[in-house]
């Protein structure tokens, strides 16, 4: 063994040529993205700024690290080895809602948790997207008849994608997230603005026994959730 590199490397331009050829086309076109196709031979691209932004958004999404129930285990597996959601550009969980674009709702939402979830959702910067994971987040799932269970996350926050299952397999969640990315990139899923808390709705309540009892205890500035179980789907 000598210290000098072999002749095949120093004296040849083959490696560089091969790489360049691989990038420009040929047998291995891994490097030919749709963007490159769009560019063609010219270094300019004409598009609408909105479209460009949508494409950017859909291509890189930060998830909120948000575990509720059983589904959060499968969500962890989706982020972890084997399934590795990061391959699709959306697998970096952020612990703070301020840094996240997408919230996956992985589990049953109960009356005590719904206001907290809403608060976390409100704290996320817009535009923000919601993926419902599993039957519980969609409709209450197997617990729908429970006295304490909210019949779906959609009662509290707007939802973009539902991934059914109990729990969905990691593959299914990957599919759901990729679909969401696609929709965002195509501009089909637009950000929704929601009013923070429905204080007005609460003020309009009929004066029943419960409201009378609580009215004195509730501060106008309080955050309030009202559950009308009889009207729930």
């Amino acid at each position: 063994m000598s210290d000098t590199p072999p002749e095949t490397i120093t004296g040849s331009t083959d490696p560089m040529t091969e790489t360049r050829e691989a990038r420009m086309g040929g047998v291995d076109n891994r490097f030919n993205s749709r963007l490159r196709e769009a560019f063609g031979s010219s270094p300019f691209i004409l598009t609408k700024f909105d479209q460009f932004m949508n494409w950017c958004r859909g291509s890189s999404m930060f998830m909120l690290q948000f575990g509720i129930a059983c589904c959060s285990l499968e969500m962890m597996h989706t982020y972890a080895v084997k399934h590795d959601l990061d391959r699709f550009g959306s697998g970096v969980p952020r612990a703070s809602p301020r840094q996240a674009d997408t919230i996956i709702i992985p589990g049953t939402i109960v009356s005590k948790f719904a206001p907290r979830m809403k608060r976390v959702y409100d704290q996320m910067a817009e535009p923000k997207f919601v993926v419902n994971m599993g039957s519980c987040a969609i409709s209450g799932g197997p617990f729908q008849e429970g006295y304490n269970v909210i019949k779906g996350a959609e009662e509290v926050i707007p939802v973009d994608i539902h991934v059914p299952g109990c729990p969905p397999r990691p593959e299914a969640l990957v599919y759901g997230v990729v679909k969401l990315q696609e929709r965002i990139a195509e501009g089909e899923s637009s950000p929704v603005t929601v009013k923070p808390y429905e204080l007005e709705q609460f003020n309009d309540l009929e004066q029943d026994e419960l409201v009378n009892k609580l009215a004195s205890q509730i501060n106008e500035d309080d955050l309030v959730m009202r559950y009308n179980w009889a009207d729930s789907p």
Binding site: S111, P115, V211, Q217, L223, V224
Partner: peptide, 8 residues
């Protein structure tokens, strides 16, 4: 029965 939950 309706229920009300506050977030104080």
């Amino acid at each position: 029965r309706p229920q009300i939950v506050t977030l104080t």
